[in-house]
Simulated scan of single mutants.
Amino acid sequence: MPFYNQEEIEKAREVDLFTYLQACEPQELVHVSGNVYCTREHDSLRISNGKWCWFSRGIGGYSALDYLIKVKGCSFMEAMEAVIGRASIPPPSRAPAPKAEKPKRLLLPPPAPDNRAMLQYLAGRGIDQEILDYCIKTGRIYESRNKGHGNVVFVGFDKAGKARFGCLRGIGEARFHGDVSGSDKHYSFALPACVENPAVHLCECAIDVMSYATLCKLDGMDWRRHNLLSLAGIYQPKKKIEESKLPAALTRFLEDHPHVKTLYLHLDNDGPGRLAAKAILAAIPEGYEVKNRPPPQGKDVNDFLCHRLEIPIRSAKGKELER
C-alpha cells in the first residue's frame, strides 16, 4: 500500500473536480450552461467555479478527493491513488467563466391534459382540497407527463409575479425529483406572503409547505394569514457552521419582505435537517428571532400530517431517481 506524505496530500487536495474529470474522465463531463457542468451519471451534481454540489443528496465540496470519497465511495487511499497516480493531470484550474452571464431562462415543462393523477397523489399525502385548488388557480402547481411518467410541477414566483423557479416531483412508484432547467433558487415555492404577519415559516420542500398549510387549517387557523416558504430542498451549510450563509430563498424573501422579523424552522427530523437548522441559527443577522420547530412526529412535516390524518406514509423504497 502506498504511503503519502503531507505535501502529496495537500497537492492532491488542490486538484478540483472539473480539472480531474477533464483530464481523467472527460466522458463524464456534461455541459449545462455557461461555466456550469454536471456528470453523466448524476445530472443533479453540478460543477461550477471550482466547486461541486450534489443537490439531490445535499453534499458538496471542492476537490476531486471529496468527490471520489463522498460520491464514488472510494477509500481515502484509493482516492489519493486515483488523483496522485494520474501524472497527466494539469495544474488545478477552474472552468472558464463566461464573459457575460446571461439571465436564467426558466423552461417549465408543458402541462398534461388534466391534473387528475396529481390531485390523487397530493390528496393521498393529506393535502387539503382548498389548498390544492388555490395552488392550481394561481399556477403554483400543475401536472406534467414525460415518457409516460407523471410529475407534479411546483412553481416559484418573484415579487412581480413572474415564474422564476420550478421543480418536479414524480407521482408514480419510481420516485424522483429535480429542478427545472433555468430555475433560480432565490424564488422557491411559497404560499401567500401576508404583509401584516411579521413571521415566516420555513420548510424544506413544497409538499411540506402545503402540508403545514393543511395543518393550520386543521387547527382552525387561516393558512392565508401565514408566510410559508420552501427552501427548495436540502440546504447544505459550510463545514464550519459559523461560516454558513442563509439559504438563497430565505435571503431573497427577507429582502423582499423587510417587515418579517421572526423565523419558524420546520425542517426535517434527520441529520441534514438538524444541521441546516443549526446553520440558519448561526447565520441569521441580529434583529431576527429564530424558533426551531421541527415536526413533533415523523421525518418531515408531511409525515406528521399523515400521522395526524392516519394516512399511510408513502414508502421511500430505494433511492429517489434523477432526470
Score class of each variant (00 low, 15 high):
Glu25Ala: 13
Leu254Trp: 06
Trp54Asn: 05
Arg94Val: 14
Asn302His: 07
Gly34Thr: 07
Cys194Ala: 14
Thr262Phe: 07
Ile171Gly: 01
Gly73Val: 10
Pro103Phe: 13
Lys51Gln: 13
Leu275Gly: 04
Leu228Cys: 05
Ile84Thr: 09
Pro96Gly: 06
Lys51Glu: 12
Glu28Cys: 04
Pro113Cys: 11
Thr262Ala: 11
Arg13Trp: 08
Glu25Tyr: 09
Tyr142His: 06
Ser183Gly: 03
Arg46Glu: 12
Gly220Ala: 11
Leu228Ala: 02
Ala64Val: 06
Ser44Thr: 15
Tyr288His: 08
Lys261Pro: 08
Leu132Trp: 08
Lys147Asn: 15
Glu14Trp: 02
Leu45Asp: 02
Ser315Val: 12
Asp114Asn: 15
Val32Leu: 14
His201Tyr: 14
Arg125Tyr: 08
Ser88Pro: 00
Ala117His: 13
Asp16Ser: 08
Pro113Phe: 11
Glu41Arg: 14
Arg293Tyr: 12
Ala82Val: 07
Gly233Asn: 03
His31Asn: 08
Gly34Asp: 15
Glu320Ala: 13
Lys238Phe: 07
Glu130His: 08
Asn269Gly: 09
Asp133Gln: 14
Asn292Gln: 11
Glu130Leu: 08
Ile141Gly: 00
Asp208Arg: 03
Leu246Cys: 03
Asn115His: 13
His266Pro: 02
Cys194Ser: 14
Cys135Val: 05
Phe304Gln: 06
Tyr37Asp: 05
Asp268Thr: 10
Ser211Trp: 01
Gly139Arg: 01
Lys99Ile: 14
Cys216Pro: 00
His31Ile: 06
Leu267Glu: 02
Glu25Gln: 14
Gly182Thr: 04
Asp256Trp: 05
Leu229Phe: 04
Cys53Glu: 12
Glu101Gly: 11
Gly298Tyr: 03
Ile284Gln: 06
Gly220Ser: 09
Ser48Asp: 09
Leu246Lys: 01
Ala23Gln: 10
Pro247Asn: 04
Ile141Met: 02
Leu250Lys: 02
Gly166Asp: 00
Ala277Pro: 02
Asn227Tyr: 04
Ile234Lys: 05
Gly73Gln: 11
Pro247Thr: 02
Ile131Asn: 00
Pro111Lys: 14
His259Met: 09
Val195Trp: 07
Ala174Thr: 13
Gly170Ile: 04
Glu196Met: 10
Asn146Ser: 15
Leu29Glu: 04
Glu289Pro: 07
Gln6Arg: 13
Pro2Asp: 10
Lys245Pro: 00
Arg145Pro: 03
Asn292His: 12
Gly220Asn: 11
Val71Met: 07
Pro90Leu: 12
Leu17Glu: 01
His226Cys: 12
Asp300His: 04
Glu289Cys: 15
Arg308Gly: 02
Arg145Trp: 09
Gly126Val: 03
Val200His: 01
Val209Thr: 07
Arg116Ala: 12
Ser63Val: 08
Glu41Ile: 12
Glu255Pro: 00
Gln236Met: 15
Pro294Ala: 12
Glu320Val: 09
Pro295Tyr: 03
Glu322Cys: 10
Ala64Asp: 03
Arg145Phe: 10
Val71Phe: 03
Tyr37Leu: 07
Ala276Asp: 01
Trp52Ile: 05
Cys216Gly: 03
Gly58Arg: 06
Glu78Asp: 13
Val209Asn: 01
Val15Asp: 00
Ile311Gln: 03
Leu265Thr: 09
Thr19Cys: 12
Glu310Pro: 01
Ile241Leu: 15
Leu202Phe: 06
